[in-house]
Each structure stands twice: as C-alpha cells, then as structure tokens.
Design a protein around this nucleic acid. Structure first.
Lengths: 351, 351
DNA sequence: TTGAAAGCGTTACCAG
DNA sequence: CTGGTAACGCTTTCAA
C-alpha cells in the first residue's frame, strides 16, 4: 500500500510538502511541485479517500435517493445528475428507495444518517412524515427534484400548469369530451408519483372548469406506465360514447392510449386526439403532442444548486418551478365533426 | 460532532469497550453492551464511515459501472444489484460510463483507481483494451455482467443460444424467410451492446445454417431501441417480398416491428411472426414471444459472487452463462400458407 | 472482561 | 517556501 510518505521520500521532501504539491493548496515552488508530481505518477499514487475525508470532513460524494430507476423520468434525471457530478469530480451514491420495501426503510434509518456524502439529492420521493423528518436532520444540504418540502431547495415542473396547457390545447381545437387518463383512484393508496398525478389532474380540472366544461371533466384510473395506459384506454375507447380527446398523465400513458386506439381502428388524430406530458424518448415515434419537461436538465440544475449550498451553507433554499413547453406533433387535431355528431347522437341514445 | 468517545463517556466505559460493544467484535459483558448501546442510541451516534474505513480497510461500498442506466436491461440489473446490496448493508456507487464521453474517460482514469469501494460490478461494459487493463489493476475483485474477460468472474446470458432457440422456434413453425432485425452494421463503429448483438446474430445464423437455410439468412441494421426497430421494420415490411418472421435482437426492437406491422395492416402472428429476447416489461402487452432473461437476478447473482470473492480473495473467478427460457405468447404462429405462396410468387416475379 | 495506547493515511497548523 | 507535529475518529493489539 503506497502512501503519500512514499511519494515524499522518492521526491526527497516532507509529507506536508508532498501533500501541498499534490492538492494544490499552499505554497510550493514550481520545481518541487514538478518533482513531487513526477514521483506520484511514477508510483501510481492515489490518495486514500477515507483518510482525506477523515481529515477534511468532505467525502466528495453526493447521495441520490429515488423511488426507482427503471422509469424514463428517473433514469433521465439520474443521468443528468451523474454527468454534472462527474464533471465536478464527485461520486454518486445511489439509493433506490422503492416505496413500501424493507430496503427503503433501511435507507432512511441507516444509510442516510451515515453521513457518507456531502449533500443529498432526493428525486420524486414523496416522503412520509417520519422520512421527511430524517431528511431534515441529515446535516448536509438536501435538494429535491419533483416534490418539495419547506426548507429544502426544490427543482420541479409546474405540473398544474402543464396539464392546464395540455387541456387548453385540446379545448382550442374544439374538443369538449376530454378525458384525463392516469393516476391513482382519488382515495387509493399512496404510490410513487401520486402527488404529481394529483397536481396534473387538478390542472386538467381547472382548465375544464375555466372553459365552462367542469361537468364534462372525467378521470379514468391508470398507473403511470404504458401497458397500464393501454389497458385503461382499451376500456375507455371501446364504449360508444368515448371521448374525442385524451390528456395522458404522462407520455407513457398517452402512448398506451394511442396504441389502444390504433388497435380499435380509431384514427389518431382524426377520431381521437391525445396529448401527454414528458416528451418521452418514444414521443416522436408516435408523433405525440406533449408538454416537454427536461429531466436531464433538472438533474443538472439540482447539482448546481447543491454545489451552491455546499459553497455557502448559509444560502437560503431556492425553489425553481419550470413551465413545460408545448410540443405539437401529430397526435392532436381539430375535433372531427362527424364523430362528434355521432357521439352526440349516441349520448342521446339514438344510435 | 458526536464521536464514540462521547458514547463511551456517557456509558462510563473506555472507547475500546464502546467500540467492541457496538461492532460486536470481542468480549463484552452483556450488561456493558446494553449500557453502551443505550448511550449510543440516546446520542444518536453514527460511526464515521471514513474513520472506520481508514482503520479497517473496508469501505462497505460497491462500485457499479454501466454504459447507461436508461435502458430497460441496465435499469433492471441496477435495481437487482441495489436490492442485494441493501440487504448486506452495502452502499452502491454508480458510474454511468457512456461510451465515447469525456465522463467515461474520467471514470476509468480517476474514479476507478480511487479505491473507494471494496469491489466492482461492471455491466455490459465492453471495455477497450486500455480500460480493461485499468479494470484489472483496480486491486479489488471485479465481477462482470454480460461481457466477460479473462480472469474476471462473469454472469451472462448465453446470447448465441438464445438467438438459436428463437430462430429454431420459428423454423419449427414452418418459417423459412426469417429476418434478423437489429444490431450495428457488420463493420460499423463500436457501440454499446455490439458484442451482445454480434453473438445473437451468430446464433441466428447458426440456426439457419443448421436447418439448411443459411442462404436465406438476412440481417437488417437497427439500434437496440423501440423507435429504431420500428423504423427499420417499416422499411423491411413495406416491400412485397417481406419475411414471414422476424427475430428481434431484443424485445424493444421486436416490439417496434410489431407496431410497424400493425400500422402496415400486417397481422401478427397470422401474416408475420415476431420473437424477441429479453422478456421486457412491455412484452406481455404486445403478446410477444420471447426468450426470457432475468436481469434483476443477474444483478443479484453478481452481488453474491462479489461477496464470495470478498470473503475469500483466493477464490478463482467463476463464469455463469445462463440459458434463456422460451416464453411463448401470441406473436408467433405457424407460417401462413397463403402469404407464403404470395411471397414465393413475388420472389419469382410473377406478381 | 476491560482500558491504554498505537496506529490507519491524510491534511492543517505553526515554526523556521 | 518547507518540515515537524498534531489532529481526524475509529479499531485493534497488548496488558492488566
């Protein structure tokens, strides 16, 4: 095991000088620095992280907690975080805290209090009270993506606004029978993403109400996944008085609806308009109109914010709430008068 | 900052005794242990990881390197690893080493040599020679998932075998015009997954050759993603002399082909059979016949193997090569005689 | 069964 | 600009 002592000896200087030369802190003559660096390179010396951390109090390590990594949004955020961290020479310790698992409990009770990192990024966590309490007591800065909490810095999408714009877009195209697809049952059990889903549903409702169509608002339950969106849409679209437009709680659900429509012979966008929220990697393939959020950039922003907090511990928490941009593709179009009429007929029981 | 000294003081014992009581190593009377633990709990004491690592030489931390986290397979493997690690009370440090990025270079040149972890799991890395050399010199055990290398323990799928079985399944159904969809151009640039793709293509070719249909073997390029599979399949299926069956290099590509077929009005499985490799989360929704690999379990197995190496450093490397199991759903069926004839006609130029 | 003391490999402080 | 020395917080001999 090669230590800085070996480097110092080879370079013919003291440990202190070697340390200064290598870390760049403090005065060292150019010649000495050169000599020490050469020696270190020759020996393949790498400083022991534990020793450095022990004495400096910094781990050069950032913790990331998220409820899963196998969903598009989370994976993207994670890559965004990783990229930024790498640039700063910081390590990423991952905690995959799936709700309701013993692993999650352990993460909150043991791992997070180990102070193995200089700061923490929590993504879409929707922590319970006990968990939130632990988060606060961590002692290092915490930045939250998606969800927020008093006293933490937050990077999030304005979900209400996104859903509102999605709905408004459909309304502007003349749609009235607009369905909101996705999210849990109004008083079902709490699952990952349910806060987000609720906010989006509220946005949808708000837009409908503002357009004087509050009584037409309709919500069908679906998990935030493509197969689930597909299954739910098959049910919904099978009925005679089906909607002319669907707001998907997220792109995967919206795409599920498009696939369902195709299978049932319903033309998109002629007979059915579909809009999502995300701008998922599949959105383009399905020509999905959607509200773009940029998860990678959210990840990068979280790292920046965290770094700011690290540099100045007194810095008050900040909240960034981004507005999604509408990306119009080909899954939405003006309401089809024929279908519309047929629907009207159907609803009057004449067909 | 509370140290073990504070715990010791409160419990009225020495640091050594406190340490023994807390770590469980060495003799401590039950009464003392009780007292120390109570004191620790009262103070909310948590041992400093860096201090412990410094003295024990163990970080209780496992590194995981993969070329991306936003693809199904990798995300699943990652969750499998995380679950197992959590159970063992080990931390996971993630390195997302996307090929060709400066980040990747940095990971190999700086991070991996920091010895911040007790062991490393490399997933689908396909390292270049220089990278592999670094991997070997890490000094901690390395377990590889997917790819392998002399001297490392490996957990992998038998890709050749999987593709063979996929192809045999189609042959047994009477198909002759079977296309292999996916993977890079034979001598294109090296991209993530290209070794895997090559092995699967070989398996396909082998099966075709063994059935005396080697000259019918046909390969169309596609990236390992759903949109890419879709686009490639649209091209392929648009032509009059299209295949009656497709082997997708992975499920996403296969599903892309199914979606393409539907769009073109081609019935699956009546007019086209499609088989994939993976058993992706969407496979069931598309009734995709596929060869199941279990990435979570591969992750778990890698952790087990790594732990074995940690427990016994002399343990020679092991290689586990799993055989995928055929899961028959509804995307494959007997070749349709009518279409088959039409194709034969077309190929003779009579249509 | 317990305590004192010696490190683990660095950085940081203080003289020189 | 450089070298000695004291931490950093813990585990681990070694004696008692």
């Amino acid at each position: 095991m090669m230590g800085i002592a070996d480097v110092a000896r080879l370079a013919g200087v003291s440990k202190s000088t070697a340390s200064r030369a290598l870390t760049g802190a403090g005065y060292v003559s150019a010649a000495t620095r050169e000599r020490v660096q050469r020696a270190a390179a020759e020996l393949g010396y790498v400083a022991s992280t534990s020793a450095v951390s022990l004495v400096t109090g910094r781990t050069r390590n950032v913790g990331v907690v998220m409820p899963c990594v196998n969903r598009w949004f989370f994976a993207e955020v994670l890559e965004g975080i990783q990229d930024s961290l790498l640039e700063e020479g910081l390590n990423l310790t991952l905690y995959d805290a799936q709700p309701g698992t013993p692993g999650r409990r352990r993460i909150f009770e043991e791992f997070l209090s180990r102070k193995q990192f200089d700061g923490l990024i929590a993504v879409g966590l929707e922590p319970e009270d006990a968990e939130l309490a632990r988060l606060r007591r961590i002692g290092t800065p915490v930045v939250s993506i998606v969800g927020g909490a008093e006293g933490l810095s937050v990077i999030a999408l304005d979900d209400d606004h996104a859903a509102r714009r999605a709905t408004d877009h459909l309304i502007a195209l003349g749609h009235r029978r607009i369905l909101f697809l996705g999210g849990g049952a109004p008083d079902g059990p709490k699952v990952a993403g349910s806060d987000v889903e609720r906010a989006r549903r509220e946005g949808y409702r708000g837009a409908m109400a503002d357009a004087g169509m509050g009584d037409l608002a309709q919500h069908v339950v679906s998990s935030l996944s493509l197969p689930s969106g597909y299954a739910a849409a098959v049910d919904v679209l099978g009925s005679r008085d089906r909607p002319t437009a669907i707001v998907g709680v997220c792109d995967e659900v919206a795409i599920g609806a498009i696939i369902a429509a195709r299978r049932l012979g319903i033309q998109v966008p002629n007979d059915l308009s579909v809009v999502g929220i995300d701008d998922h990697e599949y959105a383009e393939m399905f020509a999905l109109t959607t509200l773009r959020q940029a998860p990678r950039e959210q990840g990068a922003a979280a790292v920046r914010t965290l770094l700011d907090h690290l540099a100045d511990p007194e810095r008050p928490p900040t909240v960034i709430r981004a507005q999604a941009r509408l990306v119009v593709r080909n899954s939405t179009g003006p309401v089809n008068p024929r279908r519309s009429a047929a629907v009207a007929d159907a609803s009057l029981g004449r067909l």
